[in-house]
């Protein structure tokens, strides 16, 4: 099954989920006036649109994929690893704060995105510390936005 068809199936399933969830919406008052359709009509309409378009895309997508998604499995996994690092970064911010969290995340991202290229450890360290310093000065000092200090240090 090609990418488009898998995507279409997910779209159809999502539209059904959306339709069911729309039914649970509680109106705050029953009659606004005129022929106001209420808060559910628009979500229902979009759910139906997504359902129909999901089926339409499924029917029209009969060609095999011309190229692998995001450069193939390895590249795709690297990209997902980057997103995982960003997710872990959020946790690190809460635990250890901005400074340590950003240095760690920066180093991890550089190593993942280097795609196996050998990098000098001191360049990576220098970049990570430098980037963290720039972001800290830019946001906390110049823009006066309080960045997370971390539960362990606050």
């Amino acid at each position: 099954m090609n990418q488009d068809r898998i995507f279409s199936i997910v779209t159809i399933l999502f539209s059904i989920f959306m339709f069911v969830e729309t039914g649970k919406i509680k109106a705050t008052f029953t009659n606004v006036g005129g022929s106001d359709p209420g808060s559910k009509v628009f979500p229902y309409a979009i759910a139906v649109l997504l359902f129909i378009c999901g089926i339409g895309k499924f029917i029209r997508s009969n060609k095999p994929d011309e190229k692998p998604f995001m450069g193939g499995k390895v590249s795709f996994l690297r990209s997902m690893a980057c997103i995982a690092v960003l997710g872990i970064y959020v946790v690190l911010l809460k635990l250890v704060g901005f400074l340590i969290g950003t240095v760690a995340a920066s180093a991890a991202l550089v190593l993942i995105m280097a795609k196996g290229k050998k990098l000098d450890w001191w360049r990576v360290a220098l970049f990570s510390v430098g980037l963290t310093a720039v972001l800290y000065v830019g946001f906390q000092v110049v823009l006066k936005i309080q960045l997370p200090a971390g539960m362990l240090f606050s």
Binding site: C82, Y89, A105, S106, L109, L135
Partner: peptide, 16 residues
């Protein structure tokens, strides 16, 4: 790898 790392972290701090 340096440029995109900087951009991603800028996005994260920006959204914060």
């Amino acid at each position: 790898h340096y440029l995109y790392t900087a951009i991603f972290l800028l996005c994260m701090v920006g959204s914060y």
